[in-house]
Amino acid sequence: MMGCPEIVEDIFKEDSFLLAEKNAGKIIDREYSDKTMWKEIIYRFTKNKGAVIGMAAILIIIVFAIIGPYMSGYSYDAVDMSRQNLVPRIPGIEKLGVFDGTIKGIDQYAMKGLDHTYYYFGTDNMGRDLWTRVFTGTRISLFVAGVAVIIDMVIGVVFGMISGYFGGIVDLVMQRIIEIISGIPNLVVVTLLMIVLKPGLLTIILALMFTNWIGMSRLVRAQVLRLKEQEYVIAAKSLGASDLYIVFREILPNTLSSVIIMAMMSIPGAIFMESFLSFIGLGIPEPMASLGTLISNGYKSMMIYPHMVAIPVTLFAILMISFNLVADGLRDALDPKMKAG
């Protein structure tokens, strides 16, 4: 028995088993409360600072896109050759030495005898108010964003859903159609459309309709292929559920988070496509303005009047970054794997 550790008999006293914290019994079990999924998602989204800032930026831009064009009192297409190429002048801020309407110390407004006129963003080379034009352009960009989401949600989701759920020959044919469509470059589609249609919003929407939903339909198809073999779908089938019930009540809610993320992700792409088409002259025609045409026009006189390109580019960049931030935030908020952790 030598060398054996001394055996201490365990004696349990009354206070041997006490709760670690004094108010341990009163902890509210948040984890198991009847919180709805959406409440939880909003809670997680608001925890993400970048996403909230992005959301706020988008909301501010939307507000300005709605009221901006009415603020300055100038119309977006009113040409005034006596007021061309004015630099920004904003009341109040002009005293700080910025946005005071001067180039190298020379007051452009005074030169033209416009002492009490203010162009917040200046004017372009046709004398049109850039403030109005920038926000009319933002309207168009946001409209394109909305259209892109709707196209994604409607065509992309329905196409992917049918293709994935019914499978077999239906899937085979539908996937070959997608391959053919995605094989044609976007620019070729738009150029061909130009032969038939005039350049304009409709053409851009048609171009988006033709190709923009392919990514979404592939995503939805992949999700449906995975989900339709899940036991809860089989359970619904064994209960006698119809195809429609299974698709809308069992499968669709489970794809919703990735659909929302994908739609949000496709917005910057769509806005960029519109701007790009307008920039190369295939988009919105003059005198209509979009962020793309504004950048395109301003770029021509960038060395002399940098504000003409800087302002729409800044707004465009803020819009793109904000949508990306919100999409990222939504992905994190909706990702079910986060829930397990």
Binding site: M37, E231, Y232, I234, A235, E250, N254, L256
Partner: peptide, 12 residues
Amino acid sequence: FQDPMASLNPRK
């Protein structure tokens, strides 16, 4: 069903 995790729709 076999898998109690997979046989219940997580969204319901």
